[in-house]
Amino acid sequence: MRLSVIIPAHRSHAFIGDALDSLAAQQQPDGLALEVIVVADDGTDYAHHFTAARRQALECLSATTGRIAAGPSAARNIGLNRASGDFISFLDADDLWLPGRAAALLPLADVHGAAVCRMAITALDAPGTPKLTPVLPKHGHLSPQDSLLIDGGFCPVYRRDCITHTWDEALDFAEDLLFNHVAVVNAGGLFVHPQPLMHYRIRPDSATHHMPSASHRAERAYAQMLSRLSPASGETATLAACLHRKRRLNAAYLQAWQQEPGLHFEQFVRASSP
């Protein structure tokens, strides 16, 4: 059994060592090989981060988009094409898997097709910020429709047969929403593990959190996705309703951020949820 973890890397040399160490420290069930594929999207070489100690625990591969800032979707697609795993997951270069994540999620992904855990969140520009847990409707098995209610990023482990598609490289924001939705539909749902077994770290230079431009990019992405949806099917109507809800949430967050600059989206979601 093999798990492939794909890491897109753009200006990530200061952080990626921690990400690799978090994977190398995973307790691996007997017979599991853990493959990590780092795809450079900044014209630099990340292979020197594959130290001897990391190579002892991980099968390390490096690749490149061949461009500068082609985008995380392009990098993930290249990694997906290189991946040999029976299970697939994606990790941003500045985030961490906490101990036990692989051992907890792999059996669930094997049974359910897709499994995820809650996340601990901190801002790297604010040492001492309390860890937050993103709001999830519940833990246990979620339908594809209920999984659309998750606000904020989430990074499942997927059984390989659930990934029949690629990342949409035309989107420069919220691209994970569409990719994850298709994979979760293929899996017939998403199993949510109740423990926070991933550490999501918000970088001060992250384009995803650079306000107010991030909010404007989100609005453009949601509008673009809505314009592509074909009418009629119930699944399309569900996704459209989700996108309209996210547009309203994004507008409310922008208004809240204007009143409280520095407010992170995850903090806003937690504070505004019942």
Results as ranks from 00 to 15, higher is better:
40 A>Q: 06
17 G>V: 06
218 A>R: 15
164 T>Q: 14
47 A>R: 13
35 E>H: 10
106 L>S: 10
201 R>C: 10
142 L>H: 01
83 A>F: 12
146 D>N: 00
230 S>M: 03
6 I>N: 02
21 D>M: 06
196 P>W: 06
256 A>G: 02
64 T>S: 15
121 I>P: 04
114 A>Q: 07
189 G>N: 06
39 V>C: 12
263 L>E: 07
256 A>T: 01
238 T>K: 03
262 G>N: 05
103 A>I: 01
82 R>D: 07
232 A>G: 02
101 R>C: 10
155 C>W: 12
114 A>M: 09
208 T>R: 12
186 N>P: 09
267 Q>P: 00
191 F>Y: 15
125 D>T: 01
198 M>L: 13
228 R>N: 05
50 F>T: 00
146 D>C: 00
247 R>I: 11
76 R>Q: 12
29 P>A: 09
134 P>G: 04
84 S>E: 15
20 L>P: 13
61 L>M: 08
48 H>T: 11
243 L>D: 02
227 S>R: 11
225 M>Q: 13
245 R>Q: 13
240 A>V: 07
257 W>R: 00
56 Q>E: 15
190 L>M: 06
89 S>V: 08
7 I>T: 05
93 A>G: 05
131 K>P: 00
228 R>M: 01
129 T>W: 01
168 D>S: 13
223 A>L: 11
13 H>G: 06
86 D>I: 05
148 L>Q: 04
90 F>H: 10
35 E>G: 07
79 G>E: 07
200 Y>E: 03
100 G>E: 03
226 L>E: 07
259 Q>D: 11
245 R>P: 01
11 R>L: 13
83 A>Q: 11
31 G>I: 12
185 V>K: 10
64 T>I: 03
196 P>E: 06
167 W>G: 02
